[in-house]
Amino acid sequence: MSGTACACQEIECGEIEIDYSLLDKIIRYDYGGNREAMIMMMQAIQRVYRFLPEDAVKYLSQVIEVPLTKIYEVATFYASFSLEPKGKYILSVCTGTACHLRGSGGMVEHISKRMGIAPGKTTSDLKLTLETVNCVGACAVAPVVVIDEKYYPKANIATLNDFMDRLNAE
């Protein structure tokens, strides 16, 4: 086991312990070390750490013999990967067309302003990550906000304020 400093400078998040036996299980056992499954391995690693720690990516690179720069390319190409630690809560606002027409843009702006973070970013206390998602397919109940995988249908500024109030009280 070894520690690694975080990729992000502004955030104090300390060291992340990488469990190499767990990585081995994911890479070698679950996906048989198959390079074609690299994206799914990365998703599995991200499920463990909630982001892709640099050391874990380096280890993946060694095991499946794919150059680090190629994994970095993949990690920065696909929107679901994050190279920075995510907050305790992840709030995603659906910005699909139906949600957009019903004001999801304003909701993103509102959270951004109130929490002081741009979409895609995490608060400095690592409590909240604000994300946008291109349609979760629940257009009938637009606008939709997803907080930690729970759907909040027909959300509005009041829904968000409730959540942020609770968050700030924590």
């Binding site: 910005t95 699909g96 067309t97 291109n134 397919g137």
Partner: peptide
């Protein structure tokens, strides 16, 4: 990979 925002036929 139904990516069009506002489409959910394949998902259903």
């Amino acid at each position: 990979d139904e990516g069009d925002p506002g489409a959910f036929m394949d998902r259903s």
